[in-house]
Write a protein that binds this DNA or RNA. Sequence first.
DNA 1: GCTTGACCCTCCCGCTACGGGAGGCTTTAC
DNA 2: GTAAAGCCTCCCGTAGCGGGAGGGTCAAGC
Lengths: 272, 272
Amino acid sequence: MLSIGEFSKACGLTVKALRFYHERGVLTPAKVDPHSGYRYYDEHNLETAHVIRALRDLDFSLDDIAQVLENCDDDRDAVAYLENHKRQLAEKLDHYRDLIHKIDRLVTQQQQTREDVAMNQASFEIEERQTEPMLVAGLRMTGRYCDMGKGFGQVARKVGRHIAGKAMCLYYDGEYKEEGADFEPCFPIRKAVEAEGLHVRELPAARCVTLIHRGPYDTLSRSYARALAYAKDKGYELDLPSREVYLKGPGMIFKGNPKKYLTEIQLPIKPT
Amino acid sequence: MLSIGEFSKACGLTVKALRFYHERGVLTPAKVDPHSGYRYYDEHNLETAHVIRALRDLDFSLDDIAQVLENCDDDRDAVAYLENHKRQLAEKLDHYRDLIHKIDRLVTQQQQTREDVAMNQASFEIEERQTEPMLVAGLRMTGRYCDMGKGFGQVARKVGRHIAGKAMCLYYDGEYKEEGADFEPCFPIRKAVEAEGLHVRELPAARCVTLIHRGPYDTLSRSYARALAYAKDKGYELDLPSREVYLKGPGMIFKGNPKKYLTEIQLPIKPT
DNA sequence: GCTTGACCCTCCCGCTACGGGAGGCTTTAC
DNA sequence: GTAAAGCCTCCCGTAGCGGGAGGGTCAAGC
């Protein structure tokens, strides 16, 4: 018969834990002095204690341990519980793996943005440029521009891990529309994915009038005006859809400072 | 200004959570009516709420979120926190992966034991057999047999994932010794591992008198007597170390029922 | 027999991030 | 004016203990 302190040393469980196990009924001492309330443990308790320790080390809950103790005499009986517990652990594992991947994506996106910004920092002038063809997944929608965020959210959720570049939006109207606008938020993706509701295809190359707009979205019209004036000046006829590429916009976590947003406007020139 | 219920719908956080965030100071409503105590939230709160949601989805603690909110205006500022958090998640990931491996090992060992037992169930008679050479890691010790368990524990901890078969023990004394016995608990392993304090080598093949003992260890002497009598009868001279292979003994979790233990005794015959 | 120090006891609070519910105001709609 | 819905605070519960307060018990030495 060992006192709780001696037993604690013998089995490697803390005194606090032993008292708690007693209270929860998973490890009842062989004898409790009714006068002093002192707990005394025997050989059989030691065995149970070892079992509890082994199972706690495997992250079993006390309730599960109680079940195992009740139904098993043998490692063999415990196999079903072990398998079951393993499944639960595997779920947690997947969960954490998923979170780590998400963080990874956030960080690399952030890095990408920083590089893009650094690269484009010099030129805020109107340019003519040939865009590269790219594979995109988009969600065509009709409504107000402020609902665009939800569209991006939906697309991102569906093609999440295949995203290969900056968010962009295609505009199928030739003008600014308060309501009933026809536009398509999309993401460049690495490889063709099937996703219901999404339009996945290669966006063709096009010669464009481009301009990087710096500042909040509600001042975009000024930059549009400049680009359109330039095109008119050159006598270009413009094509649809026009594009906006969100080089630096609201982050995945923070909205950030709208004064620092960078948006590239791309107005395709109708080939002559 | 939205009431807490409306705001809850707007940001996707529960009313309970919002009150809790207020109490913890991570999301203070724009206005609190001093008379009624009603909380009212504004546009800026909505932004903060989104940040909190994004970070909670990544399993950030509220304390960490508070720090991020205090020090970051931008996804870019948050990168360091994300990296840090990722490290913590990676630790958990490793932890769970480790546990799953441990469970796997337990289960496969258990299965192995079952198969071994099924195979050996028929024969409890004395046999002569050539043992196969095998790679083992052992810990030679001097003392009492009851300390053998600790020896197995040490060996198992060091070569854990390389264990390839049943625990066994080599006996270097020609007789039973109460104290000062010279023996070596060891495990067969898959490939040579370096482990300080352990003796890793190939155990040579040997022709043996073998016998499977069923029951607790304190009745082993009867089986030894039978095997020794057989050897004497045949006129064999015996070699050292003799071996015991623990086909079915105390499990990794449960001690199990000693009456069901199976132990193979192997007494090497000195080549003539 | 007495003291002392080590050991043990039973509460109670703390941690995370809320959820559930009781009991009581306030606001809003009809 | 009234009723329903919404809001408030306060308290308890979660898992598995750790820390500590305040007080009883045990064994040994004098």
